[in-house]
């Protein structure tokens, strides 16, 4: 399921299955040292990868960063769009600085700021080259989620 999700960004990451542990619906990637010392009553551990809910996978920001380190579908946005996206907004064509990988409607793309840091990901709603203006990437998940979680 995790690898299927990663492939939607047109890339692959080899995850060592022996180092992945599951706690209910959440998945974690450990290092060897953690693997040796972990007891089964843990709450969370190592690198949180994401969770499943009703058969769908919801990635963590750690996993998105891991994908962003690879050659994958990425969209770099300007400073203003960086903040709007982090507030849950969709991305307009005017805010895009550069696209790497797919520009096709329906594909997933990571959203990065000008420093190359991953802000989340979205789904391309209109071919980025063909659209003249307006929203072209629908926000699926963004780092503003950390603030929204605090408020819950």
């Amino acid at each position: 399921m995790i690898e299927d999700f990663i492939s939607r960004f047109e890339t692959r990451i080899r995850l060592n299955r022996n180092l992945i542990v599951r706690k209910q619906n959440r998945y974690f990637l450990l290092n060897e040292k953690l693997r040796r010392s972990i007891s089964k009553e843990f709450f969370c551990a190592g690198t949180y990868l994401g969770k499943t809910k009703r058969g769908k996978f919801f990635p963590s920001f750690n996993l998105l960063r891991m994908i962003a380190d690879k050659k994958a579908n990425k969209t770099i946005v300007d400073k203003k769009t960086e903040w709007l996206f982090s507030c849950g907004r969709d991305i307009f064509k005017q805010g895009i600085i550069r696209v790497m990988g797919s520009k096709r409607k329906g594909d997933y793309t990571l959203v990065l700021n000008q420093h190359g840091e991953c802000l989340g990901f979205g789904k391309i709603t209109r071919h980025i080259d063909k659209a003249k203006d307006g929203a072209v990437i629908k926000n699926v998940s963004d780092i503003g989620d950390f603030l929204r979680r605090e408020k819950q």
Binding site: F42, Y48, E150
Partner: peptide
């Protein structure tokens, strides 16, 4: 756990 995820901590087990 949210704090650890935000700050990219990889070496911690929470109990």
């Amino acid at each position: 756990s949210n704090h650890l995820e935000r700050c990219r901590v990889k070496n911690t087990i929470v109990y």
